[in-house]
Computed example of a mutant assay.
Amino acid sequence: MIGIKIFIAGPRSVSKLNLKVATKLDNIINNDFTVLVGDANGVDKAIQKYCNEKEYGNVIVYATGKHEGYRGIGKSNK
Rank of each mutant, 00 (worst) to 15 (best):
Y56A: 05
K66A: 11
G57L: 04
E55K: 15
H67E: 10
E68N: 15
N52R: 14
E53T: 10
I73F: 13
R71H: 11
A63I: 07
E68F: 13
V59G: 00
N58C: 04
N58I: 01
E68S: 12
Y62A: 05
V61A: 02
G65C: 05
A63W: 02
K49A: 11
Y56R: 06
N52C: 13
G65E: 04
I60A: 02
K49T: 13
K66P: 04
E53L: 09
V61Q: 00
I73P: 04
K78F: 12
V59W: 00
T64C: 06
Y62F: 15
E68R: 12
C51T: 06
G69L: 11
Y70L: 08
Y70I: 03
N77D: 05
I73Y: 13
V59E: 00
N52T: 15
C51G: 02
N52D: 11
E55R: 13
T64W: 04
G69F: 07
V59S: 00
Y50A: 01
V59C: 01
S76A: 12
A63Y: 06
V59I: 07
G74Q: 06
Y56G: 04
R71P: 03
N52Y: 09
H67P: 04
G74N: 08
I60F: 02
Y50I: 03
K75M: 09
N52V: 07
Y56V: 08
A63D: 05
E53I: 04
T64K: 10
N52W: 06
H67I: 15
I73H: 11
Q48K: 04
E68G: 12
Y70S: 01
I60V: 14
G72L: 06
K49L: 13
S76M: 08
K49V: 09
G74S: 05
S76R: 03
Y50R: 01
N77Q: 09
S76H: 09
V61C: 06
I73E: 10
K78R: 15
N77T: 04
E68Y: 13
K54A: 10
Q48L: 03
Y56N: 04
G65S: 06
V59D: 00
N58R: 06
Y50E: 02
K75D: 08
K75W: 08
I60G: 00
H67D: 14
G57Q: 05
G69D: 08
E53K: 07
K54M: 09
G69Q: 07
R71T: 15
H67M: 13
H67L: 14
K54I: 05
E55V: 07
